[in-house]
């Protein structure tokens, strides 16, 4: 087993008892509701994000573990970026999958008539607000990609600053996000669906690239830093 896989497994075991059950049940609910035509799976992005946050935070009592376990410093750093990218982008991708599944309305027919009517009425609800479901999916993918990229950059800066400015970095990141989102949400409703899809695909790939670059930079610089 490679060092990276060992660390991912280590973190996964840490997170499962705390957030794993909750996230697992929530995703199962998303899947079941999608079968009935309810696009509840759009919330899978924050769910995987919660799992990511908990996996790293809970995996150790301190950074000392990096000096104890027989794995290189670079593997520990790569694991942080791998977990971040996997959980955020998987969350975005799952949201789309659940949405597509809900479009098929595989089990909607077995619902009682009133409930079935409500489910079908949901489709038109967002349309009237100017945000169609596909557009909402695109927005969610853009969100997850954006957070993935921003958090990757934050991890890089925090590692390189030896966690001395964590609060400041987090606050700055939060503020920038709020400003950007307030501008973005206003504009997005006006964009045609095709543009949203192109932006979301670009954001998805872009965040992958940013995460990879941040990971490489952090590995290169932090090899000389102490634990």
């Amino acid at each position: 087993m490679s060092e990276l896989r060992k660390i991912l497994r280590y973190d996964f075991i840490s997170a499962v008892p705390v957030t794993g059950t909750f996230c697992g049940i929530a995703l199962a609910v998303c899947l079941i509701t999608a079968l009935f035509g309810v696009p509840l799976g759009l919330v899978s992005f924050p769910l995987t994000a919660v799992f990511f946050a908990s996996s790293k935070e809970l995996s150790k009592s301190s950074d000392v573990i990096e000096g104890v376990l027989p794995a290189s410093r670079n593997s520990f750093i790569r694991s942080k970026f791998a977990e971040l990218t996997l959980s955020f982008l998987a969350g975005g991708a799952m949201a789309v999958l659940f949405y597509l599944l809900s479009c098929l309305k595989l089990l909607t027919g077995i619902l009682p008539e009133k409930l079935e009517h409500s489910v079908r009425a949901m489709d038109g609800f967002l349309d009237t607000a100017g945000v169609t479901m596909p557009k909402l999916c695109g927005i969610i993918v853009i969100f997850s990609a954006y957070f993935c990229a921003v958090i990757a950059a934050a991890i890089m800066v925090m590692e390189l600053c030896r966690h001395k400015w964590d609060t400041v970095i987090m606050a700055a990141m939060g503020l920038a996000t709020l400003i950007l989102l307030s501008v973005f949400v206003d504009k997005i409703a006006e964009l045609p669906i095709r543009t949203v899809i192109i932006i979301s695909a670009a954001a998805f790939l872009g965040s992958l690239m940013i995460s990879l670059i941040c990971c490489q930079v952090t590995c290169r610089i932090s090899k000389d830093l102490e634990i």
């Binding site: 087993m1 896989r5 060992k6 497994r9 280590y10 075991i13 840490s14 008892p17 705390v18 809970l58 995996s59 150790k60 009592s61 301190s62 000392v64 573990i65 104890v68 376990l69 027989p70 794995a71």
Partner: peptide
């Protein structure tokens, strides 16, 4: 290595700790 404080995930039981450490 034994430090004066535990460096392992303290919300886990020894069974899970064993599962974590084994592959290393």
């Amino acid at each position: 290595i034994v430090f004066d404080s535990l460096y392992l995930a303290d919300h886990l039981d020894a069974k899970h700790i064993e599962m974590q450490l084994r592959p290393f």
